[in-house]
Every structure is written in structure tokens, then in C-alpha cells.
């Protein structure tokens, strides 16, 4: 009986955590980062990023990312 109650309590807590997971994630919105090619500020989107020796760079578009890699070459 004790174990059943414990399982139910754990499920209730888990459900609460899942429903309110945003609350436990962050308390400020993600900062924007500057696209090194065109200078506009962009959100950190993985699909438009590039890992370099100086860290991860983020781009506003695939065109900017391509221009950056061409310049590097």
C-alpha cells in the first residue's frame, strides 16, 4: 500500500513538473547574437550555426553562413 501511494505521489509530481517544465528552464529569454557577416541580431538557431575555433557562430540565413565559409577559405 505504501509503495502504491509513493508511486502515485511520484506520478503526480512528475506530471506537475512536465506541465510546468518551462518554469524550471530559464528565467530570462535567450539573448540574441550578432551575425558576423551582415551584423543583424539573430536567435541561436542550431541549423544556422557554425562551429569555429573561436566558438559557435550564428547566422541570419544560409547565404550569410555560406559567405562566411567562403571568406574563410
Amino acid at each position: 500500500m505504501k509503495y502504491i501511494l509513493l508511486v502515485i505521489a511520484a506520478l503526480v509530481i512528475l506530471r506537475y513538473l512536465l506541465r510546468h517544465k518551462g518554469v524550471f528552464m530559464k528565467n530570462m529569454a535567450e539573448p540574441l547574437v550578432r551575425d558576423p557577416v551582415c551584423g543583424t541580431y539573430v536567435p541561436r538557431q542550431k541549423e544556422l550555426s557554425l562551429r569555429t575555433q573561436d566558438g559557435t557562430l550564428y547566422f541570419c540565413s544560409a547565404a550569410c553562413r555560406q559567405r562566411f565559409t567562403e571568406r574563410k577559405r
Binding site: G22, V23, M25, K26, N27, M28, A29
Partner: peptide, 22 residues
């Protein structure tokens, strides 16, 4: 559910929707 941080930084309405659009 959107990140709580977004509603902290932008409060609601115009702030949150503008950031999501951006």
C-alpha cells in the same frame, strides 16, 4: 508551453508575440 523566461523578459501580449515573430 513557452519558456517562462520569455514571459519574464517580455511580460505578455506585444512583448512575447514580437519576440516569437522575431
Amino acid at each position: 508551453r513557452i519558456e517562462a523566461g520569455l514571459s519574464v523578459s517580455y511580460a505578455g501580449g506585444r512583448g512575447v508575440t514580437s519576440r516569437l515573430l522575431y
